[in-house]
């Protein structure tokens, strides 16, 4: 059991930061993000899945956390989604960002789940469309379509913002 506990600690140390960023951006509040991460790592700890590689493990953790985010958004509605402006009052979330970068973050912040999830996985985590499709359990075509819609949305929203046209 100690080996399993060591493994759990190592996985939390390695992946919690990445999962926290993704889930926070999707759920838009700290408490739900904490809950999703807790449930994700608990699933990892109790299910004891076997992985072919570290990448496989990372993708599994993202997939589980994404499923849980979706459940939270759909059913729980436990905590209000907070606007970026309100969040900025509580946390130093945009400190150090240029104005255009802050604006880009606010556009992603306000996207709906379907677009936001592919944007995060593809652009922020660097997964290919095929890998994103596997993680989200949707088709590659759906990922490409969502990315296209996301790009259109970003383009429209960022029109006039220097460096983002």
């Amino acid at each position: 059991m100690s080996t399993q506990n060591d493994e759990l600690r190592s996985v939390i140390n390695r992946y919690s930061s990445m999962l926290y960023k993704i889930c926070f951006l999707i759920l838009k509040n700290e408490q739900d993000t904490d809950d999703v991460l807790q449930e994700t790592f608990l699933a990892y700890y109790t299910k004891k899945p076997a992985f072919n590689s570290e990448e496989h493990k990372k993708a599994w953790l993202i997939r589980v956390s994404q499923n849980k985010c979706r459940e939270f958004l759909r059913f729980h509605k436990r905590h209000e989604r907070v606007s970026l402006e309100e969040m900025e009052e509580k946390l130093l979330i945009t400190d150090g960002l240029r104005g255009d970068e802050r604006y880009l973050l606010s556009v992603i912040w306000n996207m709906d789940y379907k677009l936001k999830s592919v944007v995060i996985l593809h652009y922020i985590e660097g997964y290919s469309t095929e890998e994103t499709a596997v993680i989200l359990k949707i088709s590659s075509a759906a990922v490409r379509k969502r990315l296209q819609r996301a790009r259109e949305e970003l383009k429209t929203e960022l029109k006039g913002v220097p460096d983002y046209e």
């Binding site: 939390i12 926290y20 960023k21 904490d34 991460l37 807790q38 790592f41 700890y45």
Partner: peptide
């Protein structure tokens, strides 16, 4: 964009203990 969004060391420890 996400530089300032991060989990604290305390929360990591909480995650670990709560799992167990």
């Amino acid at each position: 964009l996400l530089n300032n969004i991060d989990i604290t060391e305390e929360k990591k420890q909480e995650l670990y203990e709560n799992c167990i």
